[in-house]
Design a protein around this nucleic acid. Structure first.
Length: 489
RNA sequence: GGCGGCGUAGCCAAGCGGCUAAGGCACUGGUCUGCAAAACCAUGAUUCAGCGGUUCAAAUCCGCUCGCCGCCUCCA
């Protein structure tokens, strides 16, 4: 069974076929670096991080290119506001981007080309388009002529007439067709500028990706990705540019992920309802964000809320707690003679984790289902652990340990369960304790006092200590080995 | 107005023609406990927005209605 991917171009799932056997060439639109990234950017980076990891897990070599748009109106404007240069501002937010990506544990793409380092390639491409009659100079600008590309609209599923009828764009005297888009912009005084056959200026946004993808992946490559909002006009324009110039199909599969919403509204800079990645990571572990993002299929909208993050936290904790339980399983007291507790049905479930997970992920990277399979396994493991006698059988221990290793391996595709389980749980406790007005020492002291009271069967005193701690958000757990504490969420 | 998507238990979310409609969170019951908490175990949709239709068979396909969202302007 091969991997099926949903292709925006054909509007259906298709078996993944690569140009070269076992090699996927992938291009993803990266950020325009003029501000801190929000969690929508995180979803994009994480979705493709997962896709690349899965493809590699399935044996593919992946060449993954993700660009930086480091020259653009927004960058220029923001730099002017802040009294700095466009390049300095762009560099600053590229650095900030890496800070966020590293915290999220996002693997670096194979190559991360920057627009400003590929001006010549863009000029060459624009020249080709002009030579083919697909672009024209008007004043100091160069425009793409959509009338020259009959397939314009094929990716976004619209046609020129419909678009013009509902067009909200201002009439531009310089354009032949209102839908024509700029390839090269003559620069205004004070703006960053590059020499070109059409005078000093800078490239339009769309031409960047066409020029850079062609340079690193060729005229035709396997997958192009980005957010759904890029389908039109950005990706549509890329198709027009790349295919107009080469005369060949540029991209076989277009993968677009859904948005992150807040209160069911698209998060965006203009609406002002966005949360930066670091805002979120201030309150939540990076893996909680990953868990949240992968709990829904990548193409569906994902609504951010404190509740959803709390759910994700609880789910991730459950996974880690299961792993910690298995890590703590000692090899002492194993009995060779004992028969296994795990029923044939249980072991079958555990033995089929990987094939079921693969089946889910092969189906257009269905992480939501993949996670369900992981939890399914956790349930079986917990059941076995609960019933384990003091001297467990070798068969059970082996099954449990092997399953945990497998779960970690599969979770790693989503970047989950990357930490040592005990360490994760302890770290979490420490972080949460930071937000409370009590030290661990004081807690331990109260626990000791309560222990004394309990030995004396002074339940009133014992319960009052428990209530006092609970009021501060600390919950006590009595077990045969003593009393431990935890912070209530 | 054009194009696209969504509506599945209290909430989130898989399933996309046929085995008991995954899984998570919450709730409830049980085990444990001095009582609790935590943990673990168990339990929940005769039903998939509504109405028709196709089919031996539909949450899944088709049509209509209602509700929600996105793109058509920079946007992940």
């Amino acid at each position: 069974m091969s991997i099926q991917t949903y292709n925006t171009l054909s509007r259906r799932k298709e078996p993944l076929k690569t140009l070269e056997d076992g090699h996927v060439k992938l291009y993803v639109c990266g950020i325009t670096s003029y501000d801190l990234c929000h969690i929508g950017h995180a979803r994009s980076a994480l979705a493709f991080d997962m896709i690349v990891r899965y493809l590699r897990y399935r044996g593919y070599t992946v060449t993954y290119i993700r660009n930086f748009t480091d020259i653009d109106d927004k960058i220029i404007n923001r730099a002017a506001e802040q009294g700095t240069s466009a390049s300095a501002l762009a560099q600053r937010f590229i650095d900030e981007f890496y800070v966020d990506m590293d915290k999220l544990g996002v693997d670096r793409p194979t190559l991360e080309p920057r627009a400003t380092e590929h001006i010549q390639e863009m000029i060459d491409l624009i020249t080709e388009l002009i030579d083919k009659g697909l672009a024209y100079q008007s004043g100091t600008d160069v425009y793409y002529s959509v009338n020259g590309f009959p397939e314009y609209g094929k990716l976004s599923g619209r046609n020129l007439d419909d678009m013009q009828a509902g067009a909200r764009i201002a009439i531009n005297e310089n354009k032949t067709n209102p839908m024509d888009f700029v390839l090269w912009k003559g620069s205004k005084p004070g703006e960053p500028t590059w020499d070109s056959p059409w005078g000093p200026g800078r490239p339009g946004w769309h031409i960047e990706c066409s020029a850079m993808s062609r340079k690193y992946l060729g005229d035709t490559f396997d997958i192009h990705g980005g957010g759904k909002d890029l389908i039109f006009p950005h990706h549509e324009n890329e198709v027009a540019q790349s295919e107009g110039a080469s005369g060949k199909k540029s991209v076989n599969t277009w993968i677009h992920h859904g948005f992150v919403t807040i209160s069911d509204e698209k998060m965006s800079k203009s609406l002002g309802n966005f949360l930066t990645i670091r805002d979120v990571l201030k309150h939540y572990h990076p893996e909680v964000l990953r868990f949240f993002i992968f709990s829904t299929h990548y193409r569906n909208p994902l609504d951010f809320s404190e509740t959803a993050m709390a759910d994700a936290t609880a789910g991730l904790d459950r996974l880690y707690e299961c792993m910690a339980t298995i890590d703590d399983l000692s090899n002492a007291g194993i009995s060779e003679e004992k028969t296994a507790i795990a029923s044939p049905k249980d072991s079958k479930k555990l033995h089929t984790i990987e094939e079921r997970f693969q089946k889910a992920m092969d189906d257009d990277f269905n992480t939501a289902m993949g996670m369900g399979i992981l939890f399914d396994a956790v349930k079986v493991i917990n059941k076995i652990c609960q019933q384990l006698p003091v001297s467990p059988s070798q068969a059970d221990i082996t099954l449990l340990k092997d399953s945990a290793i497998l779960i970690k391996k599969l979770a790693a595709i989503m970047g989950l369960l990357q930490e040592d389980a005990r360490k994760y749980l302890q770290q979490k406790k420490a972080t949460m304790l930071n937000g409370l007005d009590i030290s661990e020492q004081e807690i331990l002291q109260l626990i000791q006092e309560r222990k004394d009271a309990r030995v004396a069967k002074d339940w009133a005193r014992s319960d009052s200590i428990r209530d006092q701690l609970l009021a501060m958000g600390i919950e006590l757990k009595d077990s045969s080995s003593g009393t431990t504490w935890e912070i209530r969420r």
